[in-house]
Design a protein around this nucleic acid. Structure first.
Lengths: 259, 259
DNA sequence: GATCGCGTTATGTCCGGACAATCAGACTTC
DNA sequence: GAAGTCTGATTGTCCGGACATAACGCGATC
């Protein structure tokens, strides 16, 4: 006797959904499937908690091999969208997982939130590296580094004060480009592949100068972040030392537990 | 003609290192290899920047198949220890990558740093959920939740003020256990598998009460963190609202770019 | 009626092979 | 001498199968 006993009947199980792959496309098959699964999850076509249907049957239905299907599923497990349970199946996770944590610039974050970001370049010069900067970037003390000081605005109001040091000769970026977009986008555009970053987030009271720049009362609490970014060869690409108005900004992120 | 042309001869290449797997062991072969590779990297036996040697040859030398070797390598790539380059090979990354970001409690962090953590339980009671707490935990407003308020000390000095809300009936933890260890360790010990968390990190000035509890002057900048933790079924496990002395504590973490 | 054992079902691990895509360096050509 | 071209090396993708292992539900047993 067939009855719609639980959620499997009402909310779309994968058996009812139509996935398809294009073998002529240059994009890998597992990636095509992963994209379609992710889209189905985001659109609610795959209900949270619902089973995905077993891999071997799904592979047969799509004309793919099981390793390929597994690769697609695994990539979504790594993103935290799916959970596998041996003997049970693969389930869509309930919670609202967005992104584990992107290496993104403040500019992109603000733009994505529709905050109309703008940048004012306060300082732009090649200077000898101080001891702190040299240690962070792994270059000799006194060697040339590009020092950029910027004020980031949203809706015309100051949000953060950004100080960045970059090894000289890494890329040629002009002051004009920095007014237009974020630093990370410029780095990526220059063919540099960002790999990892080491961050420290803290808080302190605003100095008189900072208070004036950020339109905050003196001694107001500020959120601070220091970050050193590395490319995939291990070279330090950038050392940033930023302060944010705590009244206007907070870091928000998701993190996953490695199984 | 064979000459030791470059670094491969001097710094330990994988060809000279002896890896071995035990087929009788219940631990997966790819995991055994991954552990040995990771150990070799951490001990410097595999120099940063050095090539790992091609997969197919490594597989043959160990008596494994290429997919198994690839799985081992892939797990280290995910950890950020290795970088693969098509047509070139697999390289050991230079930088000091520790951990992408663990879902750890402050207690464990302090203990690992040898800071002699201690906990003072200020409040411990089952109370009806407020609107904020109910929304964070996904339970009806007014339903029973366990409310725990703690003061965390390091070397006998106050470090943070921790407020946690847990859905009632999830686990039975006594006030005594909370004095002894961290909350996350207790949760894991109760068989709950932590999956993901949503965090917000900000800063604000200390209230009079907080200042007194944390031995800070009134209005001193504090680092704040709000965190909701979920298990792998998507249930909210815990909602925490914490403040840290900014003069004594900062969040430090590594993050990787998803390729 | 409660407990134990067993089979079903699903993922986890592993194999051996095949072809394609890409990178670096040597070679050729202008 | 500088530019483009070819070639070898190495990872990326994909296949089809095999057995192991864990979880759940069912029945049989006590």
């Amino acid at each position: 006797m067939v009855k719609q006993g639980d959620s499997a009947g009402t909310s779309g199980s994968s058996a009812t959904l139509q996935f398809s792959v294009d073998r002529g496309s240059p994009v890998p098959l597992y990636f095509q499937l992963a994209q379609q699964l992710e889209a189905a999850i985001e659109q609610g076509k795959l209900a949270p908690g619902s089973l995905l249907g077993n891999e071997i049957e799904l592979a047969g239905r799509l004309g793919l091999s099981r390793p390929t299907v597994r690769q697609a599923i695994q990539s979504l497990v790594d993103k935290g969208l799916l959970v596998r349970r041996r003997g049970v199946g693969t389930q869509v996770v309930h919670s609202q997982v967005k992104r584990p944590l992107e290496l993104s610039s403040l500019y992109d974050d603000l733009e994505a939130a529709g905050q109309q970001p703008a940048t004012r370049v306060l300082h732009y010069a090649v200077e000898p590296a101080t001891a702190t900067v040299a240690a962070a970037l792994g270059v000799p003390e006194g060697s040339d580094v590009l020092f950029v000081e910027r004020l980031r605005l949203a809706h015309g109001e100051p949000m953060a004060h950004l100080r960045n040091h970059l090894p000289s000769g890494l890329l040629t970026l002009g002051s004009a480009e920095l007014e237009r977009t974020g630093l990370y986008r410029l780095l990526r555009g220059a063919g540099i592949t960002l790999h990892s970053a080491r961050q420290t987030v803290g808080a302190r009271a605003a100095t008189a100068e900072e208070a004036a720049q950020l339109a905050e009362p003196q001694g107001a609490p500020l959120l601070t972040m220091e970050r050193t970014t590395f490319d995939d060869t291990g070279r330090a690409i950038e050392f940033g030392s930023h302060v944010y108005r705590a009244s206007r900004y907070a870091f928000e992120f998701q993190l996953l537990v490695r199984p």
